[in-house]
Structures are given as C-alpha cells and as structure tokens.
Amino acid sequence: MSIQPTIGQLVPLKAKPDQGDALGQFLLTGYGLLSGDQEPGTLQWFALKYNTPEPNYAIFDTYAVESGRQAHITGEVAKALFANADTLLATVPDLPATNYNLLASKVKPKLAGVGSDPKKGLTVGLRVLVKAKQDQISAVREFLKGALPLVEDEPETPVWYAIEFPGTNVFGIVDFFATQGGLDAHLKGKVAAALFANVDTLLEEAPEVITTEVLAVKI
C-alpha cells in the first residue's frame, strides 16, 4: 500500500448548544481509539475546534486508498460518534459529502520532543474553502497544485493540504502550525497573496477563512 495520501474526509461537527465541551472531549477519546496501529489505513487524522461563535468542530483525515477510508468509516471512532450523535450533535454529518481528493500536500511536522502530546506539537490551523467559477475549475485546481513549491519555502508551515471536493466547484486549503506566529506568517505569504489577488478572476466569492484550534493529531 502506498503511504502517500490521495483522498480524505473533512467532516464538520456542529455541537448542540450545551454540548460543545463534551464534543471536544469526545474527540480526544476518538484520538485514543486510534492509538497504536488500530487503523493503519488512516494515514493522518486531526481533531479540530473551529474558532466560530457557535461550537463547531471537525475531523480532517487522509488515506492512500478507498479501502482505508471505508475501514475508518466502519471503525471504532465512527461507531462511537454515531452512537453519541443524538446527544452531542446538532446535525448528523453527511459522510459522502465530506469526501475530498488530495491535490497536493506538505507534511513535515517537527515531532521530536513532543512525547505524549496528542497535538504532536501543532496548536493552530486554518480551514479555507473557495468556490471556483464554473469556467475556472481547472484553473483553480492547477493554482492549488502549483502552490506547493511556495509552501515548501515556508519553514513555519509544517503541514499543508490542498483539496478538491469531487463533483463540485469547491476546493480547500487545510493547514496546521506550531505557533500563532507561523499561522500569521502564512497569511502574509505568497500563496495567500496570490489567492486573494485572483479572487475576481477565479472565484465566485471571497474565500471562507476559519482559524482552528488543534485538539489531537495522528500523523
């Protein structure tokens, strides 16, 4: 099996108004269920809290092949999530709609010295969604693929993904940083500058940018 991720899921989890803390704790429990080699086909897994007024969370994960994704969907984390959905979630996620194709990635976290830290040294991140104009879907796809060399030159951007939701005009960037300073430097970098400079040409609307708190990581 290839160890390079090619597909994944970005699963939004909207907590009931009084269940935000409980959902966050559940995601830490989910991290425990992935400990060891429980899901070898799940290459990378991130539990996130969105910095939004409402208690919104997400799971972002990657796989090399479809069988890895199916094993995760039927695995212990998914079983526990759906068993607790009525208690924790305002809406149950539509899992097929969360599937994405991976266009490009950089995964070079500095894991040395993090010990048992469930965050693996990563603390904050970004989730950026963009909607391409119908006649610019290919151009947006190539733009995101071409952004990788620029990200490779950002030493404070250790983990970066460019994704496409198949059958739609929606693309995304999901990335993670050890410090707020690294996140701020990325937002001031060449990729962000190029993306915002081409909004009118490529996109239906301005990118939707949400900052995230990293809760736990398998990587």
Rank of each mutant, 00 (worst) to 15 (best):
Leu148Ile: 11
Gln136Asp: 05
Thr157Leu: 04
Leu144Ala: 01
Phe143Leu: 14
Arg69Gly: 09
Asp184Gly: 00
Ser105Trp: 02
Lys131Glu: 08
Leu203Phe: 13
Gln44Met: 03
Pro155Arg: 05
Phe196Arg: 11
Gly32His: 10
Ser138Met: 08
Pro5Tyr: 05
Val114Ala: 07
Gln180Ile: 02
Pro109Trp: 07
Asp94Lys: 13
Glu205Gln: 15
Ile210Thr: 15
Asp37Gln: 12
Leu27Gly: 04
Trp45Asn: 03
Tyr31Leu: 09
Val151Gln: 07
Glu205Met: 12
Lys190Gly: 00
Tyr50Asp: 00
Leu95Cys: 00
Gly113His: 12
Lys190Ala: 14
Ala139His: 11
Val107Asn: 03
Asn51Lys: 13
Lys108Cys: 08
Pro158Thr: 01
Gln70Tyr: 03
Gln19Pro: 06
Leu144Thr: 04
Ala71Ser: 12
Lys188Gly: 14
Ile219Cys: 08
Ser67Trp: 03
Pro158Lys: 06
Trp45Tyr: 13
Ala162Arg: 13
Ser138Asn: 14
Gly113Asp: 05
Thr212Lys: 08
Pro155Val: 01
Leu183Thr: 01
Pro93Asp: 06
Phe177Gly: 00
Trp45Asp: 05
Leu88Trp: 08
Thr168Ser: 14
Gly189Glu: 09
Ala78Glu: 03
Phe176Lys: 02
Val191Lys: 13
Thr157Met: 04
Phe46Lys: 03
Val199Pro: 10
Ala90Phe: 11
Asn99His: 15
Trp160Ile: 08
Lys145Glu: 09
Leu102Gly: 00
Val191Ala: 09
Tyr50Ile: 00
Asn101His: 11
Gly32Gln: 12
Gly24Met: 10
Glu154Ile: 07
Ala90Glu: 15
Thr212Glu: 10
Gln25Ala: 15
Tyr57Met: 07
Leu28Met: 14
Ala206Trp: 08
Val124Lys: 09
Gly8Asp: 02
Glu54Trp: 09
Phe196Gln: 12
Gly121Leu: 05
Leu89Ser: 08
Ser2Arg: 15
Leu27Ile: 13
Thr6Gln: 14
Pro149Gly: 13
Gly121Pro: 06
Ser67Phe: 09
Glu152Tyr: 01
Pro166Met: 13
Val199Ala: 12
Gly113Thr: 06
Leu150Asn: 14
Lys120Glu: 12
Phe60Asp: 00
Pro207Glu: 06
Pro5Phe: 11
Leu89Asp: 05
